[in-house]
Amino acid sequence: MSKSNPIIHMGKVKKTFENGTLAVQGMTLDILKGQFISFLGPSGCGKSTVLKMIAGLLRPTSGQILINGKKPNEISSDQNIGYVFQDATLMPWATVEDNVFLPLRLKGITKYQASGDIEKALQKVGLKDFYKSYPRELSGGMKMRVSIARALIMKPKLLLMDEPFAALDEMTRFRLNDDVLSFWENADLTVIFVTHSVFESVYLSNRVIVMAPRPGRVIADISLKDSYPRSEEYRTTSAYTENCRLVSGHLKNSMVKE
């Protein structure tokens, strides 16, 4: 698995909203293929805005973003991007199966053709037996699993996750962290993970971008060398604690400067 080519290039990216808020100020960053990168920062530091710009859902006011050398809205629909929102964002009127099927349906694939993929995706997140359930019948963690299955069914090369586990209890969050890590390790996948939790960012990523608010900007770019696979034991190692202290220090600095 090649994990060294840049998949995303951001050059002097700036985003000003219509109300005049400077959400992101001159951000330059290269994200390498196969990285698990976390954007970490307090609310209002523009981390979700950056994610939306990478996905092509928001347009930068100036500067450029390139994914594999192309602008986000120019990349073909086959080179798809998986996106997981803060809440599960499922269609309440559709069953688990139909929710996971959505990206394929929008590509014009019939349910019959997709049935194998749907089953595999649900099996991956451990919800095979719930394919006929409606979202309201599921717990918060299960809904999030459906959302992840939906993002993975297209076998994306790039997975964007916007504080996906912020609303979940700690046990569920830990379990889903491990799941996401295992998906990333077993596929040719680059993950960009937005979070405001130092511990989560250190546990998951091999690179943490610390951001500061008003205006949103990068204040530290930290590489974490600890090897994968990481498991629950990693949370109790001194290396983990040390990394958390390091990242926390940068985060605190950003608050002091504010």
Binding site: K52, A55, G56, L57, S77, N80, I81, Y83, F85, D87, T89, M91, L102, P103, R105, L106, K107
Partner: peptide, 16 residues
């Protein structure tokens, strides 16, 4: 609005 974003991401046609 998140679902709408998702539909944009997957390049849904206006009819879809």
């Amino acid at each position: 609005h998140n679902l709408r974003d998702l539909f944009s991401l997957y390049r849904a046609t206006p009819w879809q």
